[in-house]
């Protein structure tokens, strides 16, 4: 069973739909004991960093998430919340990845919306995926490249398209909305 962390706002059912298409059962929950019992956890994110962190604090999820030892995948805002700090709302985040989240400088259209390919990819999350494959992004803030970066993308400047540290994985793009490439990446996560 995969647990999807429930949010106050935003579309988390897409992740559940994507898992269902892979024949995988999931539950949307913010209950800590249910999260601890799950085989894997997905942390989607839609909305703003500060309100999402406030929500996690209210639900006592900050320490619970940091203490998870099962495979864990943050998506989009989920990735950003797993970093140390986000410029969005001057927000202190979970601090799993030793990097920060910044607003794209206005040198091109912001938000970065649409399909973009990778510069580099590595690791089991990208099994059977090519750097030239396109995935779907929609974000105004980006995660700086760091030692945990396992995929990079270039829009205005290079940024972390995916991160990994121990059992913690994260993608800035939406695998659940990235057609067949995204499906492969979710399959890779399920098979970890």
């Amino acid at each position: 069973m995969i647990a999807i962390i429930k949010y106050n706002a935003g579309n988390v059912s897409s992740v559940q739909n994507a898992l269902r298409s892979l024949g995988c059962d999931s539950i949307i929950t913010n209950d800590i004991s249910t999260l601890k019992k799950a085989d894997k956890i997905i942390f989607p994110g839609v909305g703003a960093a500060s309100s999402a962190m406030n929500y996690l604090r209210e639900k006592s999820l900050v320490e619970a998430i940091r203490g998870i030892t099962k495979p864990f995948l943050g998506i989009c805002l989920g990735q950003q919340l797993m970093c140390k700090y986000s410029e969005e709302g001057d927000t202190k985040c979970l601090g799993i990845f030793d990097t920060v989240v910044k607003l794209f400088p206005p040198k091109n259209k912001v938000p970065h919306i649409g399909w973009n390919n990778f510069e580099n990819i590595k690791g089991s999350l990208f099994k059977q995926v090519l750097p030239t494959d396109d995935v779907y992004f929609v974000h105004s803030y980006y995660t700086e490249i760091c030692q945990h970066t396992i995929a990079s993308c270039n829009y205005i400047n290079p940024f972390s398209a995916a991160l990994n540290k121990d059992n913690f994985f994260a993608t800035q793009f939406h695998p659940e909305k990235s057609s067949l490439v995204g499906k492969q990446i979710l399959k890779n996560f399920i098979e970890l």
Partner: peptide, 8 residues
Amino acid sequence: ASEFGSQC
């Protein structure tokens, strides 16, 4: 935008 984010 403030409730759901500009991205949506």
